[in-house]
C-alpha cells in the first residue's frame, strides 16, 4: 500500500497567547511562536503507520510551506514514515484552502501511484477543514472527512463518522482521500530508532516549476478566492466575582446565586 500523508506545519497552539495583532497594521505577529506539525495531522501519520504495519508499503509525507519547514518534516519522519516531500516556493505563499488543496493535488499527481491519501481533518490554526474534500475533488477521487475510525484493506477502506445523532459507516474504494479526526487513534511517540533513522531518510523539495501542468492562476495568495480583510482580537470578557470560603460555604453561595438568578 502506497500512502501519502499531507501535513501542515502551523503555529504551536500552546503558544497562541503569544500571537498578537500589530496595533498599527492589524497584521498577525507570530514572533517567538514555534511551528509544529498540526496536531490532527499526527493522527493521520499514526493511521498511515498502522496501515503500513498491517499491509506493508510506504508512507510519504507531503507538506506545502517555507523551506524552513524541513525541520518539522524531519520530526514527522521520526514516526516511521519513509520519505518526505516539501512543496516550497515563494509563489505558493498566502494560499487559502482552495489554492493549498490545488497545489497539494499537483504534488500528489507528480509523485504518483498512491493508493491512499490521508490528512488531519482540520489544522490547528485555520481549522477550516476544507482541504481534505477539496483535495479529493481536485484529484477526482472518492473522499470522506471527519473520520473517527478507519480500517484499510487491499480492496478499500471502512470508515465511520458521526452524523445526525448517529454513526455512519461507509465503504470507500481506493484510491481515496480521507480526513481523520483525533479520535481515530492514539499517537505513539517516535522511537529512539525512529528519531535516529529520520535523519537519513530522503527528503525532496518541489518548486512550482516542478509541478506538471500547474495553472499559476490557482496558486498562492493571487490564486486564492477567499481573502482575509483583517483580524481583530476576540473579546468576550465579563466582570467576574469570586465566591470564596470553604467548599461548603462556596456551595451555599452558589445556591443563593442560582435561586436569585433563576427567579428572574
Amino acid at each position: 500500500m502506497k500512502i501519502a500523508v499531507c501535513v501542515k506545519v502551523a503555529p504551536n497552539p500552546d503558544q497562541y497567547d503569544l500571537i498578537r495583532l500589530d496595533p498599527e497594521t492589524k497584521t498577525l505577529v507570530r514572533e517567538g511562536v514555534d511551528s509544529v506539525i498540526s496536531s490532527t495531522d499526527l493522527h493521520a501519520i499514526e493511521a498511515a503507520m498502522q496501515i503500513k504495519e498491517k499491509l506493508g508499503g510506504t508512507v510519504t509525507l507531503i507538506s506545502m510551506g517555507p523551506a524552513s519547514n524541513d525541520k518539522q518534516l524531519r520530526e514527522g519522519l521520526s514516526y516511521g514514515c519513509d520519505d518526505a516531500v516539501l512543496v516550497s516556493d515563494r509563489k505558493l505563499g498566502g494560499a487559502d484552502a482552495l489554492a493549498t488543496s490545488y497545489t497539494l493535488a499537483k504534488a500528489v499527481e507528480k509523485l504518483g501511484g498512491f493508493d491512499l491519501v490521508l490528512l488531519g481533518n482540520s489544522s490547528d490554526d485555520g481549522s477550516t477543514a476544507h482541504v481534505p474534500s477539496q483535495l479529493g475533488e481536485w484529484l477526482n477521487l472518492p473522499h470522506i472527512t471527519d473520520v473517527i475510525s478507519l480500517e484499510v484493506s487491499e480492496g478499500g477502506a471502512l470508515v465511520s463518522k458521526e452524523l445526525d445523532g448517529g454513526v455512519n459507516t461507509y465503504k470507500i474504494t481506493l484510491p481515496a482521500v480521507i480526513g481523520v479526526t483525533k479520535r481515530v487513534n492514539k499517537v505513539r511517540h517516535p522511537s529512539v530508532m525512529g528519531i535516529f533513522s529520520a535523519k537519513k531518510k530522503p527528503m525532496a523539495t518541489l518548486t512550482a516549476a516542478d509541478l506538471d501542468n500547474l495553472d499559476e492562476s490557482r496558486i498562492g495568495l493571487a490564486g486564492s478566492p477567499t481573502q482575509a480583510e483583517g483580524y481583530h482580537e476576540a473579546s468576550f470578557g465579563r466582570e467576574c466575582v469570586e465566591i470564596e470560603g470553604s467548599e461548603a460555604e462556596q456551595a451555599a453561595e452558589v445556591v443563593r446565586v442560582l435561586n436569585s438568578y433563576l427567579k428572574h
Binding site: 487559502d96 484552502a97 482552495l98 488543496s101 485555520g126 481549522s127 477550516t128 477543514a129 476544507h130 482541504v131 481534505p132 474534500s133 477539496q134 479529493g136 475533488e137 481536485w138 473522499h143 470522506i144 472527512t145 471527519d146 463518522k161 458521526e162 452524523l163 445526525d164 490557482r218 486564492s224 478566492p225 477567499t226 481573502q227
Partner: peptide, 22 residues
C-alpha cells in the same frame, strides 16, 4: 454541520470559488 462542513468545500472546489468556514 457534519454534512454541510463536508460537502460545501468540495462544492466550492468544483465551482472554483471561495468559502469562509464556520
Amino acid at each position: 454541520s457534519a454534512k454541510g462542513s463536508e460537502i460545501a468545500p468540495g462544492a466550492a472546489a468544483r465551482l472554483r470559488t471561495g468559502l469562509a468556514a464556520h
